[in-house]
Write a protein that binds this DNA or RNA. Sequence first.
DNA 1: GTGGTCTAGACCACC
DNA 2: GTGGTCTAGACCACA
Lengths: 112, 112, 112, 112
Amino acid sequence: MQIYDQIVEAIASGKLEEGTTLPSARRLAVDLGINFHTVNKAYNLLRERGFLIMNRKKMFVVQKSKDEKFIENLKNLEEKLINEAIAKGMSENEILSILKNVLKKTKKGDSL
Amino acid sequence: MQIYDQIVEAIASGKLEEGTTLPSARRLAVDLGINFHTVNKAYNLLRERGFLIMNRKKMFVVQKSKDEKFIENLKNLEEKLINEAIAKGMSENEILSILKNVLKKTKKGDSL
Amino acid sequence: MQIYDQIVEAIASGKLEEGTTLPSARRLAVDLGINFHTVNKAYNLLRERGFLIMNRKKMFVVQKSKDEKFIENLKNLEEKLINEAIAKGMSENEILSILKNVLKKTKKGDSL
Amino acid sequence: MQIYDQIVEAIASGKLEEGTTLPSARRLAVDLGINFHTVNKAYNLLRERGFLIMNRKKMFVVQKSKDEKFIENLKNLEEKLINEAIAKGMSENEILSILKNVLKKTKKGDSL
DNA sequence: GTGGTCTAGACCACC
DNA sequence: GTGGTCTAGACCACA
């Protein structure tokens, strides 16, 4: 999941642009000093969730595709998080303020 | 986690007000037809995360306390979610719109 | 995939009823003389596709749930298969006859 | 496989009639902007499965021939699909209805 | 070379 | 005990 998160973050921040071919699972594994299977699993999860796609050469390539399933899932997770925040006694404005800050911060990395 | 979520949702929606004493773990377990330990675990997780507090009679009571740790955690989780959304190619406005909708929907349940 | 297919077939034929708890992955692996990970992978794929669900004891249990995604996928795969049959010059009636036979055969196993 | 599927679909829909000579693999590769080997492979797979035959000029020609092997294979694949549908709890009528719809839809494209 | 799969053994958290 | 994960090594088909 750490690899997964880092790759998602790299895509979001623009460090990995759409169409970029990732290093092979074996290669990245060696570079990171971890096992091939671990990288492979992360790559496959990213593919399942639509962040990567495999090209004709069987390499993984960055892809940006917003699908219905993802948005539905996003809403559910957000609902849980926001429920917790409200249950903690936070006001609507407080929550919105935090959300906007996170969004701005993440978006700022985007333009780098 | 289902019990956990339901209780959080009940607190957020106002069905469970601050100060309310929850049924004992054994009692709720019987009512729901599940194992005592499962309920107990949910209660303890809710206490760890600051949604409940144990009173002198060792009963669990609803508490609304926004702490630093929770907010920090909330930010981290939101960052991951929003990173995924941006990595999917969603625009800042799209994301904010979804967040506002979820917030409004959740908040509406609040007034019920 | 062999394990996957066999379990699907066992559910379809009624040998495995809804609610049945499957043997643990480790146990089944020993019984079949194969590796734990192989069974585990099959179980997880079956869960992802909605044929199994994990209960509170972390055991895999048979579940029958027809979801939209499955039906959509079924239609796509059938379309490909039927396209091939038509491209082979088979008539609509021929194809329908084969489909009915397969359905009857599979369904017959159901009542055993 | 995309090329494969598209050609099968074209034959099924009548856009490619029996006896039609396909463009050479090199030619089609250039037109589609993909590698020659990829087209060649698709053509060869189509020949292996009996959708194409090579003429004296080594060009691929559309052929409609229903062979035993194909029908056997079709039955096996259908059995797997239908097993999944039944394992999902779908009734015989539900499945048959879907099959007929797909068949009708595919057949309709035929007359275009 | 690539990813995919199977085997194998170890450790973890959970119940 | 359970599944989940990481490591490791081997072999496969594909290109």
